[in-house]
Write a protein that binds this DNA or RNA. Structure first.
Length: 547
RNA sequence: GCGCCCGUAGCUCAGUUGGACAGAGCAACAGCCUUCUAAGCUGUGGGCCACAGGUUCGAAUCCUGUCGGGCGUACCA
C-alpha cells in the first residue's frame, strides 16, 4: 500500500527531470525509526548514469515531488543519498479504514486468481510411522498450500506413495517374522534388512488377532496378506497423525497406476524415440550426459524393475499433463539427488521444468540432553511424530517446524521442547488473539454497541499508529511468504504484529475510553484479530478465543 | 574427490533484490497487576556475522579460497 501510493509520485518527479527508470522504484521500511516510514535508494542507483553525486540527485528529486501534505509529513535526503519519507497520521488512519472495510478476508488476495498449483508433500511410503523429519515436510507443504490458497490459487494437495516396491516386501517379511515369533516360534530369525521398529510387533499382534494362525505356512500369498495388512495399518496411522495436525490432502497418488496405465512404458518409448535410452549390461540407461548432466544413469535395472528416476519422471509428466500452472514438490535433503535427473528428463520430453518448484528442506536433528536421538524407521528405536504431538501439542509442533527457514538445519531438543513448550512463540500469537476476543466478549456483556464506521482519525497514539503500520505489512508478508516459499516470513510477521498489539494493549484502554475513541479502537483491534486469525489459519494453528 | 545446505549474542535462530549504528526469542539480572487475560509489558548486560582475500560509494548478504558440521553422490527411494 505504501509502495502503491509512493510509486506514481516518484515516477512523476523523475519524469519531470527527464528520467524514465527501467525498473520500478524500490521503497523499503527503514530499520531505524528516525529514518521514517519508507525509504528509497533511487538517487544512489541513478548516480552512475547521471554522473552526479547521490545527495544532489536526491535533492533534485525531492524538489520535484508533488506532495499531499495531508498524508506525507516529511521527505528528506539523508545518509549517502537515501530519500526518507515520513507519513502523517492521516495516512495510517486512512489505511485502517480501508483494512476494516476489507474485513475478515484481510491479508488474503486474488493475486493467483485463475491459476492452479499442485503441492506434493508428505509422500511417505506406508512402511512405518511418521517421525519428526516427515513432520517438517508435512508442515512446510501444508503451509505452502495454505499460503497459495490465501493468495487466490486453486490448490491441490497431493500425496504420492508406492505400495509395490521392495521396501514393502521387506515390511511384509518383518511382519511375518514378528507374527511367527508371537505365534509359535519365539526365536524365528529376523531378516537382516528388516524393520526393527516396535510398531511391526503391533502390526503382527493385530494380524494374530485378526487371522489367527492361518498365515503360518508363509506362502507368497500369506506374505502378500502380511503386506496388505501392514500397508493398511501404516496408512491409517499416518493419516491419523496428519489429521491431528489438521492436514488433509486431496489426492493420494499410487505409483502403481503409472505402471498399470502404461505411463512408464510411454516414457521409455519416448526416450527411445529421442535416442536417449540405450541398453548396456542388460540394463536400460538414460543418456543424461546428453542432457547437460555428468553421467548416464540406469532407468531400468537388469532385473526389469525401474529405478526411482523413471517413475519420478513419469509422475511429474502426469502432473504436468493435468495442467497446473505451478507444481511444488516438498522433499527432504536426502532426496536431492533425484531433482536434476527428473528436471533433465522432463525437459527432454518437452516440458518446462521452470514450472516445478522443488523445496528441499534440511533435516531436523533430534537431541535429548545434548545426545542425538535417532529417528530412523529401520533401526527400531524411534521417536515418532505422534510421541512429540503427545508431549507438546499440535500447535507447538506445527509452529516450531515452520518458524525457521526451510534450508536451515534445525535442532530440536526434546528436553527443551518439554520444558519450554509453554513458552513457545505460538502461544504468544494465540494469546493476542484470545485477548482481543475477550475484549469483544466484555463489550458484549456490557451491552456496548460496536459501530461499523468509527472515526479512525481519533487514533493518534503512537502505539495505535504503530499497530496500523504493523497491519499494513501483513498482506505483503502473506504474499512474500508464498512467492518465496518461506512460511517463516509469515510466522515472523505475525510475531511482530502480536508484539505491537500487546504493546498497544498495555498502553491504551479500550472499553474504558471515551465513546468515539473506544469505537475507533474496537475497529482497530477487530482488524488485528482478522490478521491473526488468518495468519494462524495459514500456519495450520488454532486461533483460540479463550486461553 | 564431486554436488547441495549450513556456520550470526551463552542457547535456538531472523536478517527482504547488497544499504544507514547487526536483530528476535529463550536463558541472566532489575522493575510493572485494587483498572478490558501477567501465557502480558518496561529496562540492563551480551557480537572479529567461522577465517582470509576480492568486487563497490556501501558486504552478514555477491565472487574465490580455507576450516568445521549435515545430506547426497547406486542396477535403494
Amino acid at each position: 500500500m505504501i509502495n502503491e501510493y509512493l510509486q506514481p509520485i516518484f515516477t512523476n518527479a523523475l519524469t519531470k527531470l527527464g528520467i524514465t527508470p527501467d525498473e520500478p522504484i524500490v521503497f523499503e521500511a527503514p530499520k531505524i525509526a528516525e529514518h521514517g516510514d519508507a525509504s528509497t535508494n533511487i538517487a544512489m542507483k541513478l548516480a552512475k548514469t547521471m554522473r552526479d553525486n547521490p545527495r544532489n540527485i536526491a535533492e533534485k528529486i525531492i524538489a520535484n515531488l508533488e506532495i499531499d501534505s495531508h498524508f506525507i509529513a516529511a521527505v528528506e535526503s539523508a545518509g549517502a543519498g537515501f530519500i526518507n519519507i515520513r507519513f502523517a497520521n492521516a495516512f495510517f488512519q486512512n489505511a485502517i479504514a480501508e483494512f476494516a472495510q476489507i474485513g475478515e478476508s484481510f491479508g488474503k488476495s486474488n493475486y493467483g486468481k485463475g491459476k492452479s498449483v499442485n503441492v506434493e508433500y508428505v509422500s511417505v511410503n506406508p512402511t512405518g510411522l511418521l517421525h519428526l523429519g516427515h513432520g517438517r515436510n508435512a508442515c512446510i507443504g501444508d503451509t505452502i498450500a495454505n499460503l497459495y490458497a490465501a493468495i487466490g490459487y486453486d490448490v491441490t494437495r497431493e500425496y504420492y506413495f508406492n505400495n509395490a516396491g521392495n521396501q514393502m516386501n521387506i515390511l511384509a517379511k518383518s511382519i511375518y517374522t514378528r507374527y511367527r515369533q508371537q505365534l509359535d516360534e519365539p526365536d524365528y530369525p529376523f531378516p537382516e534388512d528388516g524393520y526393527h521398529g516396535d510398531y511391526v510387533r503391533e502390526i503382527a499382534a493385530g494380524l494374530v488377532s485378526e487371522v489367527g494362525s492361518s498365515l503360518i505356512a508363509g506362502t507368497p500369498e500369506d506374505l502378500t496378506k502380511c503386506r496388505k495388512f501392514g500397508e493398511e495399518w501404516c496408512f491409517a496411522k499416518i493419516k491419523q497423525t496428519l489429521e491431528r495436525m489438521n492436514i488433509h490432502q486431496d489426492l493420494y497418488f499410487n505409483e502403481d497406476t503409472l505402471y498399470s496405465d502404461g505411463k512408464i512404458e510411454q516414457v521409455i518409448a519416448d526416450f527411445r524415440k529421442l535416442g536417449l535410452a540405450y541398453e548396456k549390461e542388460s540394463a536400460l540407461w538414460l543418456a543424461f550426459s546428453q542432457l547437460g548432466l555428468k553421467d548416464d544413469r540406469v532407468i531400468v535395472k537388469s532385473s526389469g524393475e525401474p529405478t526411482y528416476r523413471l517413475p519420478d519422471i513419469a509422475y511429474h509428466r502426469e502432473k504436468f499433463n493435468r495442467g497446473y500452472d505451478l507444481l511444488v514438490d516438498v522433499f527432504g535433503a536426502d532426496h536431492i539427488a533425484t531433482v536434476p535427473d527428473v528436471m533433465a528428463g522432463l525437459r527432454a520430453l518437452g516440458y518446462e521444468p521452470d514450472k516445478v518448484k522443488v523445496l528441499i528442506h534440511q533435516f531436523v536433528t533430534l537431541t535429548e540432553n545434548g545426545q542425538q536421538v535417532k529417528m530412523s524407521k529401520r533401526t527400531g528405536k524411534n521417536y515418532t511424530l505422534d510421541d512429540l504431538l503427545d508431549e507438546v501439542g499440535e500447535d507447538v509442533v506445527r509452529f516450531f517446524l515452520i518458524m525457521r527457514g526451510i534450508s536451515t538445519h534445525m535442532e530440536f531438543d526434546l528436553g527443551l521442547a518439554r520444558e519450554q513448550s509453554d513458552k513457545n512463540p505460538v502461544f504468544y500469537l494465540q494469546y493476542a488473539h484470545a485477548r482481543i476476543c475477550s475484549v469483544f466478549e466484555n463489550a458484549k456483556e456490557k451491552g456496548i454497541y460496536v459501530s461499523d464506521k468509527p472515526d479512525y482519525s481519533l487514533l493518534n497514539h503512537d502505539t495505535e499508529i504503530n499497530l496500523i503500520k504493523s497491519l499494513n505489512t501483513f498482506p505483503d508478508a502473506v504474499l512474500a511468504s508464498a512467492m518465496k516459499f518461506e512460511p517463516q516470513i509469515l510466522a515472523e510477521n505475525l510475531r511482530q504484529l502480536a508484539t505491537d498489539f500487546h504493546f498497544f494493549y498495555h498502553e491504551c484502554r479500550i472499553l474504558q475510553a471515551e465513546e468515539e475513541l473506544m469505537q475507533a479502537r474496537l475497529g482497530l483491534i477487530r482488524v488485528v484479530r482478522f490478521a491473526l486469525y488468518n495468519g494462524l489459519s495459514i500456519l495450520g494453528v488454532k486461533a483460540p478465543e479463550r486461553m
